[in-house]
Design a protein around this nucleic acid. Structure first.
Lengths: 202, 202
DNA sequence: TAATAGTTTGCAGTGACTGCAAAATTCCAC
DNA sequence: GTGGAATTTTGCAGTCACTGCAAACTATTA
């Protein structure tokens, strides 16, 4: 019988994965993401290099240590949102949920600057974000009763992501403003219209 | 005396660069971006592999073959925009200028689907876009008389980029709608407010 | 035409990543 | 417990991207 949770095998896999992610993050913080080799990470987690690649497709993925639960919870939040909630409001709750998750795990401060300081990491983060965006867009379009090919749902999800990225970037230069505050401001600007005078003379 | 344009040396450099970019694009279209090796590209352009890396930092950069003139023209457009033009309108002209440039070069159709089909290319494009974004943001913030740390200019530039990306993605699934039309729709949605009901019940 | 400055190239090396097949480990039925 | 099935780990060989270095080459210019 297949036991997905309790078995020794499953537990060991979780442990190995966690050990690799932890080692990757620690070493990246210590030595800078570009100066860590997969060999070191594997060694620190006490497995072979080959095993590392059984768990993660590349170094960056391990450092990012993305938690698949976040996306699941985000999609769940979207599915169960009250019908009368407007789309960007839903995205707002989704995003703040993820931010809260990250803060609870202490990951936000720990990984934030690391990511923003490394093109390779930012790139991989966005890469995996695109997958998420696609799923979120599909879910949001469904919620809004719009076809998958319409611009608005995709733009809402994309712009929300942009607001997060911009917030992280600005936070890097103005650390006194917390990310969540910057994100909130971004959402408000988006909501009201980024530029009401568009196409007209102001 | 330094002669930046006419010299044989300069011309040869331009030719080599063009030959490499052309070979990279042709081979990527032929065999798929992931199945081209730098060795093949260099061979097709009749230079050594090492020389390839003197011109481009990585394979993707050569395939993208980004034209630095586009950014320059974009920044120029922004600098010379009439004072009474609203920020997103300025971005609109900037973006349509680039789109027109790309269309004139026949690059849009040729590279568009290639890029959207390859994660590595899309990431690389975005990465180089980030640099552009930073410069555009700075220029736009200056134009708007806002500090570099404020959210709105960064969000306008970022959201404009998102509109372009979303347009490319949607165009891939609905080729009958031209990219420029999708971009235009995106800008209008952004301008009016992506979600006027944000934070309220609708 | 000779010195100089800039470009190309080969070479050696590091490091990411993959496929394959053998070895080790866990699982499960008996 | 034990044995065979299923799964995971590992080593190994190999490909490819990319870098630094120093030698060979080529255009420039005095």
């Amino acid at each position: 019988m297949r036991q997905a949770e309790g078995g020794l095998r499953e537990r060991k896999k979780r442990e190995t994965r966690a050990a690799l992610a932890e080692a990757a993050l620690r070493l990246a913080l210590e030595k800078g993401p570009d100066h860590v080799t997969v060999e070191e990470i594997a060694e620190a987690a006490d497995v072979s290099v080959r095993t590392f690649f059984n768990y993660f497709p590349h170094k960056e993925h391990a450092i990012l240590g993305r938690n698949p639960e976040h996306l699941e919870r985000a999609l769940e939040r979207m599915r169960t949102a009250p019908a009368e909630e407007s789309p960007l409001t839903t995205m707002w709750f989704v995003v703040s949920g993820v931010l809260r998750d990250l803060e609870n795990e202490g990951e936000l401060s720990r990984r934030g600057e690391l990511i923003m300081g490394s093109p390779a990491l930012l790139y991989q983060l966005m890469m995996s974000s695109f997958d998420d965006e696609r799923q979120l867009t599909a879910a949001l379009a469904a919620r809004m009763g719009e076809p998958a090919s319409s611009v608005r749902p995709a733009l809402i999800v994309g712009a929300a992501g942009t607001a997060c990225r911009v917030a992280m970037e600005l936070h890097k230069n103005s650390p006194e403003r917390p990310v969540s505050e910057l994100v909130a401001e971004g959402f408000h600007v988006l909501a009201q219209g980024i530029d009401p005078a568009f196409g007209r003379r102001r």
